[in-house]
Design a protein around this nucleic acid. Structure first.
Lengths: 204, 204
DNA sequence: CGATACCAAGCAAGCGCTTGGTTTGTAAAC
DNA sequence: GTTTACAAACCAAGCGCTTGCTTGGTATCG
């Protein structure tokens, strides 16, 4: 399945909003504003202006401002979990799977969904505790996938550290690329993936 | 020099505030509040209450709320640069120096100055651009130290990736520990350092 | 006596969100 | 094939509250 096909399937199942629709457009603008200015500094008036409506009209689509933040996060996790599962199907050795995971996460962070992924990392604390719990449950599938693959690579002798520590280190390292990596610079996403693999002493 | 001696020297030079004084106590509380609730969600009333004064009285010590954030960041960088330079003096091979840097940064993040370090990472965008530029200049010494050591390790054959990429990956990975690592859990700071070194395929 | 540290009170601006009413799209009823 | 019905989408206005910060005055202490 292509990335577009995956997106369309999720839209059909009502798991993510169509970016062409009013709700989807709002979420896209919200992700951009939340990343650029932070959730707290972004006002409902900013959000409304970004999609060309009055601030009060926002509350026809979302109950609260926080619901918008939560929707950005939930839909991003859903999309990226699907993309990641699909990327895994294409390869078969543990090391290839690890590379595929790294590559897929770098693409999430620095590609189309990058704005929303940055929000997921940096605006986490702006969610109420109740919402955090909800969103966390969605991340479990995603995280267990990583741990399984890292465990297999370790079995294989390609890793000396503990999988759960490595996963957390990679979460930080890969998320952080959003602050410095520019896809249109001198290094491609594949090149960046190579660097991460090389850093782990897993030359391919 | 012990860590305490370094701190005292900096206080004497007026480069960081004495934690016993009014200003130092406020900065300590500010770091804690900014980390726990975020800069925007922390009000000047919160800050004042934390040190037991009226909100208006804050502005006798700091011109603006942003000045408090900036002071937290500046003093933290000064202290940690000094600690890191000192840690480097104790060892001599490139690999030992790298380990010392990793260990020192983990200690900055998860030890005494952890609250302020988390603020440095997560509240960066809350600084005005002018203040960001100022603070960035201070980080240069610190960062060049890393690049020199990583370059030497690469020369040594202990590294396959590019030093500047590795430094950025490590920045992310080590900063991120603040979200999950607990010093009072099952793993010591030295153990965590071991894991990072092992992950890089640099078993010691 | 003068500087330093603080308090009590409150201002102007901006915030999330509500309200009551109008437009727009759609589909059944005649 | 026009009319009627009705919900969804939106606007204009503004409420109640919180925000960072100011002001004028009062303790405290070398």
């Amino acid at each position: 399945m292509t990335q577009d096909a995956i997106l369309r399937a999720l839209i059909a199942d009502n798991l993510v909003s169509d970016p062409a629709g009013a709700r989807g457009r709002l979420l896209k603008e919200a992700a951009r504003l939340f990343r650029d200015k932070g959730y707290e500094r972004t006002t409902v008036r900013d959000l409304a202006a970004a999609v060309g409506i009055q601030s009060g009209s926002l509350f026809h689509h979302f109950r609260t401002k926080e619901d918008i933040l939560k929707a950005v996060m939930v839909e991003t996790i859903r999309l990226n979990t699907a993309l990641m599962l699909s990327a895994m199907d294409a390869v078969h050795t543990p090391r290839d799977k690890l590379r595929a995971l790294i590559r897929a996460e770098l693409e999430s962070i620095n590609g189309q969904t990058g704005e929303a992924m940055a929000v997921l990392v940096f605006e986490w604390r702006s969610l109420s505790e109740a919402a955090q719990t909800e969103v966390l449950a969605l991340r479990d599938i995603y995280e267990n996938l990583w741990l399984d693959v890292l465990g297999a690579v370790k079995e294989d002798g390609g890793l000396n550290a503990q999988p759960f520590v490595v996963r957390r280190m990679l979460t930080g390292a890969l998320s952080w690329t959003v602050t410095w990596y520019r896809p249109d610079g001198g290094m491609s996403l594949d090149g960046l993936t190579d660097q991460v693999v090389a850093m782990m002493g897993l030359a391919s």
